[in-house]
């Protein structure tokens, strides 16, 4: 049984067919890339998988359970986490609190515990701070835990967003253009980070990325979308030599 199984998913907005007949199987531990020109519908796929949109057609299963119509928070609690193309941190909260929010649905104390600051509150908060700090340390963000997230430099914001997604303890991580706005050195570091978190957290990763060296460098399998349709699927090598893929990308460059 595959970890994630999406069959014949389509997403239509007012006549616009953003994604058509999208099918995907992710095996546990895989690192798969989702690429395609701008407006190909990649983020829409993420939004369907994470419950932001309910697909117009098709079904999605995660660990054998249907999640097609589940709410975003249910899907996240079930084990799928994501980052966003345009970073969506809790800007006016501290770095530490960003992580603590991600841990919140696992925090076990009642309103009365919080109001009276009873031992259950103390115990749980201590655990959560320790857990958060450990995660921040892994991402080299310790020492900045009291900074407001909005005051971090761009690269650290990206890292914090990944750390925050991991704090929800997902089995499947969806990364939406993690290398956007990074130079070659930074994206090289990012690749290593992604490889490493996959090992360390036992993750399956689905990745949207424009930066071709990153995609070709770390993905085991790549799926290519154009105008909402899947036009190719295969290993990085196969994709690089696929005629339709090259055409799709050339078309984009001509428009630019």
């Amino acid at each position: 049984m595959s970890l994630l199984h999406a069959e014949h998913c389509s997403m239509h907005f007012k006549g616009l067919k953003a994604v058509q007949d999208f099918t995907l199987d992710l095996e546990e531990g895989e690192l798969v890339g989702l690429i395609g020109p701008n407006g190909a519908g990649k983020t829409t796929v993420f939004n369907m998988l994470t419950g932001v949109y309910v697909p117009t057609e098709g079904k999605i299963f995660f660990q054998g359970q249907e999640i097609t119509k589940a709410k975003a928070w249910q899907i996240n609690q079930g084990g799928i986490a994501r980052t966003f193309q345009n970073i969506r941190l809790f800007g006016d909260m501290t770095v530490l609190d960003n992580i603590r929010v991600a841990l919140s649905f696992r925090i076990r104390y009642k309103m009365l515990d919080a109001v009276l600051r009873w031992s259950q509150y103390q115990k749980e908060e201590t655990r959560v701070i320790e857990e958060s700090m450990e995660l921040l340390r892994l991402f080299h963000l310790d020492g900045k835990q009291h900074f407001l997230a909005k005051n971090l430099p761009y690269g650290e914001q990206r890292r914090l967003e990944i750390a925050r997604a991991l704090a929800t303890k997902p089995k499947l991580l969806l990364l939406d253009e993690p290398a956007a706005g990074m130079n070659n050195k930074e994206s090289e570091e990012l690749m290593q980070l992604i490889r490493w978190i996959r090992e360390h957290f036992n993750l399956t990763i689905l990745l949207i990325e424009h930066h071709m060296p990153v995609v070709m460098g770390i993905c085991e399998r790549i799926k290519v979308l154009d105008f909402g349709q899947t036009i190719a699927e295969g290993t990085p090598l196969e994709i690089q030599s696929n005629k339709r893929v090259i055409e799709a990308y050339l078309g984009e460059e001509v428009e630019d």
Binding site: F13, K14, T43, F46, N47, V52, F84
Partner: peptide, 8 residues
């Protein structure tokens, strides 16, 4: 009015 689509 027409429905609005939330953007992510």
């Amino acid at each position: 009015g027409r429905p609005v689509v939330k953007k992510v």
